[in-house]
Amino acid sequence: MLFFRSEERVDAWCRAAGLPRRPVVTLPQLWHLATAWYGNRLTPEARRPAPDEMREIFAATGLTGAFWDPSADSFA
């Protein structure tokens, strides 16, 4: 989960590293994930989201498909 200046930089990095291009997340989407995942992490009752909650968080962030399914065993 690395930062890049632009999607073009992601493409160049993936080509150079011989890695598949995977989803790119915008800064506002990343903030949504950060607040949903970690907003209460310092409270005594905090816990990691369960798989169903993870799916809901991803969907609410606009991230859908098998890549974002915590129980998926295959993906494009």
Binding site: F4, V10, W13, V24, L30, D69, A72
Partner: peptide, 10 residues
Amino acid sequence: CVAHFAVPAA
């Protein structure tokens, strides 16, 4: 800027 997710959630 953007963030690239290289590994699927599963």
